[in-house]
Design a protein around this nucleic acid. Structure first.
Lengths: 103, 103
DNA sequence: AAAATATATTACTAAATGAGCATATAGCGA
DNA sequence: TCGCTATATGCTCATTTAGTAATATATTTT
């Protein structure tokens, strides 16, 4: 039972960081390779790679290889929903893209 | 826009810690004073007090005074839902109490 | 007003975190 | 095979974090 707590905390912690939120915001539109992500958010490749690993270990992301690249994606649509729900808590609709019904 | 990211990260971070998850698990049944919380989760009063402050600042909790005591509560039912949704992600129903429909 | 109770705050310590830079590893094309 | 590109991994540094213990600040009761 305490084990579950740890896992839950780890999962939430994986979401709870600005750089990672930026990455997730990109990935909500579909899978992307590291080479796309790090320029898009203005962080170093190594830094982004680490954040991706961390989120993967926490169960937030999944990945697959495509030749040289590694494509990352959000593991479960529910996670995207979750993040949108957090936005709603702050009276924020999603970041103007890929929104759902609005109610 | 980056401001919102920070706020979102702070909010999620406030949830992403085992001791705080224990506190939230207690509070989902209703408001509680510090004096009830800290023995219930086996942490020091000062430690719990600081976690409560942190969650309050992050917008997770609200509080009111009742005589000597301070009663804390989860600020918005949506937050409780959010935490339940995280449980569902791990194939966990809520912690056996106060569950909703079960989907 | 003094004692008792509940909560918040401060100072300290150990551990975790995020970022940078350099380097290692893996897969592709010549 | 060699070089080129993409990703992952050490290593270090500065900062943040969770916890403890001690103390300060209410608020109630006597």
């Amino acid at each position: 039972m305490d084990d579950h707590l740890e896992q839950k905390a780890e999962f939430l912690k994986a979401l709870a960081q600005p750089t990672r939120l930026k990455i997730l915001d990109l990935l909500k539109d579909g899978e992307r390779c590291v080479c796309d992500i790090f320029p898009a958010i203005g962080e170093q490749q190594s830094n982004v790679s680490r954040h991706l690993q961390l989120m993967k270990r926490a169960g937030v992301l999944a990945s697959r290889k495509d030749g040289l690249r590694v494509l990352y994606r959000i593991k479960d649509g529910k996670i995207t929903r979750l993040l949108e729900d957090v936005d709603l808590l702050f009276g924020r609709a999603g970041s103007a893209k890929g929104k759902r019904s609005a109610a």
